[in-house]
Design a protein around this nucleic acid. Structure first.
Lengths: 178, 178
DNA sequence: CAAAGCATGTAAATAGTTACATGATTTA
DNA sequence: TAAATCATGTAACTATTTACATGCTTTG
C-alpha cells in the first residue's frame, strides 16, 4: 500500500483534528504551507480513495441543505500514518526558489538590478516571516496547548530559516551597495 | 513570449558557459540543484524549442562519431534572460520537505520515534552541507574567479540555511532527549 | 578490455495547478 | 442585501519524473 505524499498529509491532518476536505485545506494553509502544500483538486479525490482503502471513514453531515462530509481516521489509517512516520525512507527535500535562481544568474545584469533582486528576496522572506508570526504562530500555539507540540517546533524552523535568509540579504546588500 | 522557468534556467546556464544539454545538466547538479532543478527529459526538448524561437543557436559538433550539439545564446536570448531577471513578477518559493512534514506530525508517534525524525532531518542537512562544501563550493569559486560572483553568493545562502536547520535540530534534540 | 564518463533522445506515467462550476450560510 | 465564508467537486492543462533506448571515448 504505497500512497502519494499528499495522502499522508491528509491522514496527518485528520489526526490533528481536521474533519472535512475544507478543514484540511484551511489547516494546511496556516500550518504546513511553507514546507508542504496540497490543492483542493488533490484533496477531494484522495479522501475518496482513502475511504475505499478503509484508512478513513466518511459520513455526510446533514446541516440544513449545506453538504459537508466529515472524515475520521480508522485504526488502520492511524497505523498507516505511524508506519510512514517511522519508516526510514529518504526525506526528500525539493526547493524551487525563483528568488535564488535569479540571484544565481545576477551577474548577467548590472549591479543596480542585481541589488533589486536581493532586496526582493529579502522582502519575500520578511513577508513569509510575518505570515509565520501572524496566522501560523497562534494556530500552532493552540495545537501546542492541546498537547500537539510538534507543529510549534516546525514553525521554529521556518522562522529560523527566513531569519537566516534576511540576515544574509542584509549582509550582501551592504557589501554590494554603492 | 512566456517561457517556463526551466527555459530561463537553460538560458542562464548557457550564459554561464555551458555549451551542451549535458553541460547544463552537469552545471545544475553542482550549482543550482539545491534550489532549482531540471531533468534531461526537459532539457533536450526545451533546447530545440529555444532554437526555434531563436533565443539560442545550435550546431552539431562533429568530433569523430560522437554526436554533441553545442548551443549559444543569441542577442535575443540574452535580452530575454535579462528581461526575466529584471521583471518584478512574484519570486515564488516552493518547498516540499518530507522531513519537516514528518516532524510536523510527530506527535502521532512516541518520543523515541520523534527523536529519530529530528536526527534524520539533521543528518540530511549535514549531508547537503557537505555536498555544498564539496562539489559545489569549488565550482562556485571557479566561476567567481572568472568574474561570475553570484553563484558563490547563492551558495552562502544554502550553507546558512542548512546550518540554521542543524542548530535547530541540535537544540530540539537536547530539549527532547531523555 | 572493462568501467567510467560523455552524449542524446523519447514514451509513458505521475503529480500538481488552474479554471470551471455550483450553491448554502453567516455576518456586516 | 451584498460580501465573506463555508463547502464540494471535475476537466483540462502543465510540469516533471522515470524508465527505456542507444552508442562513442577515455582512462585504468
Amino acid at each position: 500500500m504505497d500512497l502519494p505524499v499528499a495522502a499522508y498529509l491528509i491522514l496527518g491532518m485528520l489526526g490533528l483534528g481536521a474533519q472535512s476536505g475544507y478543514d484540511i485545506k484551511r489547516l494546511v494553509e496556516v500550518s504546513t504551507r511553507h514546507f508542504s502544500t496540497i490543492s483542493r483538486a488533490q484533496i477531494y479525490p484522495l479522501l475518496k480513495q482513502l475511504e475505499r482503502d478503509r484508512l478513513v471513514t466518511g459520513h455526510a453531515e446533514a446541516q440544513g441543505n449545506r453538504h459537508r462530509r466529515v472524515y475520521a481516521l480508522t485504526a488502520e489509517g492511524h497505523a498507516t500514518l505511524q508506519h510512514w512516520l517511522r519508516a526510514d525512507d529518504p526525506l526528500t527535500l525539493e526547493i524551487r526558489d525563483l528568488g535564488m535562481l535569479k540571484l544565481f544568474f545576477a551577474d548577467a545584469v548590472n549591479p543596480a538590478d542585481a541589488l533589486q533582486i536581493i532586496r526582493a528576496v529579502r522582502a519575500r522572506s520578511q513577508r513569509m516571516l510575518s505570515e509565520l508570526r501572524q496566522p501560523s504562530e497562534p494556530a500552532a500555539r493552540a495545537l501546542d496547548e492541546a498537547g500537539r507540540h510538534f507543529p510549534l517546533h516546525t514553525l521554529g524552523f521556518g522562522i529560523a530559516m527566513h531569519e537566516a535568509v534576511i540576515d544574509h540579504c542584509s549582509a550582501l546588500e551592504a557589501k554590494l551597495a554603492p
